Amino acid sequence: MERLILTDAQWAKMSPHCLGKPTDPGRSGTDNRLFIEAVLWIVRTGSPWRDLPPSFGKWNTIFRRYRDWVKADVFVRLFEACSDDPDMEYAMVDATIVKVHRHGQGAKGGPQNQAIGKSRGGMTTKILALTDALGNLVHFRLMPGQRHDSVGVPPLIDGLLFDGLIADKAFDSNAIIAELNQRGAKVVISQHSRRKQKLDIDADIYKWRHLIENFFCKLKEFKRIAMRADKTDTSFSAAIYLAAAVIHSR
């Protein structure tokens, strides 16, 4: 058997949210835990689905099941089950760019519909993430690689409550600062040199920003995320949700 990832504690949180449980109507899934381990093997190694070890089952059956779960937002629910009760005293936002493998290109509708764009590094996708005060993922958005980081912040923080926001100077935007002031949230955003009236930033709190950078480092240990090989943004998002669920509940 290939090396497995899920602990019993992680599986206890995930299992109630899987499809095909014995209590569900219709056909029951054959070992949901092994299926999730198969998906994690793909996400961790970055291998093509056809190279999935036979010990996990038939690769094409597992791939079709994966796509069914993607469409049903199951991986979102698995992430939410493992990431309950975030510490929102402070939120942190940052972005990272991942290269898109040629196997990740060619989806119907073109790259612009799959959060893929041409930037300095070639065809890339940008992962814009918001974490809690402990560096655990709360929300993320996918954007084409050439889009500016600050563009995705308003929908990312919409409806979220936090006491302050920590970010680097890429997010030094008048619109973002105005939104935070309206919320009464503390602004801990590094200032651009071109800003005429500098804000008073708490330097000690700003040092916490390394936690979101640590999260990206852990996320990119999963090779299918470090280099995107998924054609659709829904499949790529599902891989991120599953990896983040495992990272959060370690």
Rank of each mutant, 00 (worst) to 15 (best):
L142G: 03
D51A: 12
D68G: 08
N136Y: 11
N181C: 10
P54I: 07
D87H: 04
L40M: 06
D149R: 04
D172M: 03
L199W: 07
P144D: 01
C217D: 07
I5L: 05
S47Y: 00
W69Y: 10
W41T: 08
R183G: 13
Y66L: 09
L156E: 12
L6G: 08
G29W: 00
R147L: 12
R50K: 09
Y241K: 03
F63S: 10
V151C: 10
F162R: 00
H17W: 08
C18Y: 06
A107I: 07
R141C: 04
H192P: 14
G184L: 05
R67H: 14
P22I: 01
R228I: 12
N113E: 14
M143V: 06
L161S: 15
R65N: 15
V100E: 00
L40K: 01
F222C: 02
T45K: 03
G26L: 04
T23A: 09
Y66G: 11
G110L: 10
Y206I: 03
G26E: 02
M227P: 07
E179R: 12
G164S: 05
Q197K: 11
A175K: 10
R65D: 15
G104K: 00
R194K: 13
Q146D: 10
L219C: 07
D168G: 08
V138P: 02
G110A: 06
G57F: 07
P154D: 00
E179V: 06
P16Y: 12
G121K: 04
D163F: 15
L199S: 13
I42A: 09
N60I: 03
Q114D: 04
E89F: 14
R183M: 14
L242G: 03
T30E: 14
A12S: 08
V138Q: 01
A238Y: 04
S150C: 13
I157Q: 01
I240N: 00
P86A: 05
A178E: 11
